[in-house]
Design a protein around this nucleic acid. Structure first.
Lengths: 232, 232
DNA sequence: AGAATAGTGTCTTTCAGACATTATGTT
DNA sequence: AACATAATGTCTGAAAGACACTATTCT
């Protein structure tokens, strides 16, 4: 590769930016970092950074997750969102960023990376109103909408939960992400009748008052036919 | 921008590759170009090329459409597919490509660009079996699946038709893209009952034997609630 | 007249939404 | 006992699939 004359094409920087989503105490939340350094210091932004020359773009996303968020590969479901490459989106140079969404359960409090002056979880509704750096407000909005849409026609909601969960917890994911109440009995029937959406484990768990809930794990189905709809 | 020290980040080439889809004589078709030059000459590939330094990535896609395919902005619906950036996907250098799907009606026979030794429309089913250059086989497969999926829950099918069309022609789009017969009467009812999917023009057209078909134009709805499903 | 295509109507099944009812725990 | 939550059952309306039937043209 180094033998090839690189002068024949315009050079770009390629970055990976991450919309890291989880549910904390029933609140749909996103991880933001406060920028350090000299450019846009103090502004909140999505975690991310430069892709290395020999690095797969998805590996770059996983590496930034690890370095900036202390989150491992097994802790999240990572999915490419889209690529943002308007010429002026970074004033310093021409940067094209590949954005990803990362969904996880019980994600830890972040440890600020070397480039970031701080990091914390924000409720998504609040984060959408922030004046984020670069075009990160748009990326965040797109990522949130992608997550909301995918709950409709996929079984992705389980990515927000630990290995074992109850159907009420699964419903809680939908309610947190959509900001909307769902009928418990209809939701229960819908999930159980969708073949291999969840697999019963035969055990129960008691969280508060009321009948104990049965535990399930994810099934192998990834597409919901028919979907669960928003906005009744 | 030129004042910034570019040595601090790894340089990438960014390209735009296009999955250009249309329906020709009832056959779901994709535009491929035969590579010229010195690298992989003679291999079929998706049309595309380098993004310029001052150019928006979507503008690059439109420019390649114009240069390599002689297709204007108004002739297609362009949508970002995803970005492919494995380190070894181009042996010459590190290239990240932003892939797009372009859907159009009655697209013209291609005029080969300067880089291409030839260009032609291929039936999608045949193109999927070709040994395309780079990772274009995967990009093509992803683009075709995206188009097929979007017909289900969006009104995108009309992008394959001219301004005025009959419901039978719209059904023909679904049948060509999905490779599957649909019941004419149920399809007709479904389309007409979806508010503002199509707008009647009050005129008719006679194509062959049989009752003349009423003409419609696209409505303003973009999302189908509920969707039209594949695989009965 | 017969064939071909466009469009409407009907019946059945499936499933979502609303909500009543039962089951099983806590306080 | 009162309450809270989980899970099941019932009723109704919307909509899809199958298909009969009508409408309008061409050969």
């Amino acid at each position: 590769m180094s033998a090839y004359d690189a002068s024949g094409y315009p050079p770009f920087a390629v970055t990976a930016d991450l919309v890291v989503l989880t549910i904390r105490a029933g609140v749909f939340s996103v991880l933001l970092v406060r920028r350090g350094g000299t450019h846009l210091p103090g502004r909140w932004a999505l975690p991310g950074g430069f892709t290395q020359v020999q690095e797969d773009i998805q590996d770059a996303a996983y590496r930034e997750l690890s370095e900036e968020c202390d989150i491992g590969r097994g802790d999240v479901v990572l999915e490419q969102l889209r690529t943002y490459g308007a010429p002026g989106r970074d004033k310093r140079m021409r940067v094209v960023t590949v954005a990803w969404i990362a969904l996880g359960a019980d994600l830890p409090e972040p440890t600020a990376g070397s480039d970031a002056a701080g990091a914390r979880w924000w409720p998504v509704t609040e984060a959408l109103d922030l004046d984020l750096a670069f075009d990160h407000r748009q990326i965040l909005a797109d990522g949130v909408e992608r997550a909301r849409a995918k709950l409709e026609y996929s079984t992705l909601a389980a990515a927000f939960l630990a290995e074992e969960f109850s159907i009420a917890q699964l419903r809680g994911v939908y309610e947190a992400v959509w900001g909307q109440r769902l009928d418990p009995s209809n939701f229960h029937r819908k999930v159980r009748r969708t073949s291999d959406f969840v697999v019963p484990l035969g055990r129960q768990v008691q969280t508060g008052p009321g009948r104990p809930a049965r535990l399930y794990r994810r099934g192998n189905v990834e597409v919901l036919h028919p979907p669960i709809r928003r906005e009744s």
